[in-house]
Amino acid sequence: MTHSTSKIFLILFSMVLIFSWVELGFADGVAVVVNPRNPIIKLTKREVSDMFLGRRHTFPDGNPVVVLERNPGSQLREKFFNLLNGMNLKLLNAYWARLQFSGRVQPPVSISNDHRLLEIILQNEAAIGYMSASSVDDSVRVVLNLDK
């Protein structure tokens, strides 16, 4: 194998690795975002966890919160909860089954894509959602960054 062939092979191999890394969603963190008119600047993991588990219904300043979830089986949702509080989808489903089917709390609305999520957050000061950190733009405020 010549030196140049080895180089090409190395580059190709690196590209495959990088592609796999991005594809699996490991290269990017998850950002928790709110409407920029929302006075909240930062939230803790515990506060966000309580909101997305249906335990907490207000922001720390007392204003009501509208939680926007992602599709139940999505990799983004699995990653978000894994970084937030260590829960996997199996635990989450059992947890929400108890709340939903007892009638205590109905699950938040699920949003399928970033575009729709941003659209709703921009319309609603009480909304909170999450997306890949790399997809965040200036239209929303990041209140918590969950790194890999």
């Binding site: 489903n93 059992a94 947890y95 089954a97 108890r98 089917f101 007892s102 009638g103 205590r104």
Partner: peptide, 9 residues
Amino acid sequence: DTRNIGYAY
């Protein structure tokens, strides 16, 4: 209020 929901417990 969750007696029936076996999957939840």
